[in-house]
Amino acid sequence: MKPHKLPFENRWSNGEHGWQWHCELERLGLMNVRAMFADHETRHPGKRAVIFDIPGGFVRDWLAFHDRRTARQQFLWRAIVIGLTLVTAVGTVLNLLRL
């Protein structure tokens, strides 16, 4: 079986163990993991594991990866909207100048 590569950098685990943790977090979902991590940080900051046997640092890296991906998607969306608005404005001005 080919080892999986995590889509983000972490210093907690690599290989199959890290991939299992990643899959478990993906299965739980971003909002659930974020709520569980916040609860862990406020109630049990000294405990090593946040969710099952997944360390807090790994969960933090996983959440940061998703935050960066969301920010990149928002940036691309805004760039596309601004570009289309600019094209529409230029087209409108050129159309007015031809009249």
Rank of each mutant, 00 (worst) to 15 (best):
N95C: 12
R68V: 01
T85D: 09
W21F: 06
E16D: 11
V90G: 02
G83Y: 02
Q74H: 11
W77L: 14
I51H: 11
G46I: 00
P7K: 06
D61C: 05
Q73F: 06
R72Y: 06
A64W: 07
G15T: 08
Q73K: 15
D39E: 13
N95D: 13
V93P: 01
A38R: 09
L96I: 09
W12L: 00
K2Q: 05
P45C: 05
V90E: 08
D53W: 08
E41S: 13
G46K: 09
W12Q: 12
R68P: 00
I80K: 15
R34T: 12
N95F: 14
I54Q: 09
T88D: 13
G29N: 04
P3T: 11
D53I: 13
T92G: 13
S13Q: 08
F75N: 09
H4D: 05
M36F: 02
R69I: 03
H4N: 10
R60S: 10
I51E: 07
Q74E: 15
G18H: 02
V81G: 03
V87M: 14
M1R: 11
H44W: 07
V81Y: 05
Q20T: 07
K47T: 08
F52N: 15
D61Q: 01
M31R: 15
R72Q: 14
G15K: 10
Q73R: 15
A89R: 08
R68S: 10
R27Y: 11
R34Q: 14
L94V: 11
R27A: 12
D67F: 02
D61I: 00
I51T: 08
N95Y: 14
T85A: 15
P7W: 05
F65W: 14
D61W: 00
H17Y: 01
R98S: 11
Q20R: 14
L99D: 13
L6A: 03
S13L: 03
L30K: 13
R27C: 04
Q74I: 10
L86V: 13
G57P: 04
R78K: 13
T92K: 05
G29D: 04
W12Y: 07
R11S: 03
T92S: 13
W21K: 04
L76K: 12
C23G: 02
T42C: 11
L63T: 01
K5V: 08
L28Y: 11
F58W: 04
F37P: 00
L6R: 07
L25Y: 05
V81P: 01
M31K: 15
H17R: 14
F75R: 15
W62C: 04
T88M: 14
R48K: 14
V87Q: 09
V90H: 04
K2W: 00
L63M: 08
L86K: 04
A35S: 06
D67T: 07
K47H: 08
W62E: 03
P55W: 04
L28V: 08
A38L: 04
F8G: 03
T92C: 12
V87T: 14
A64C: 03
K5D: 12
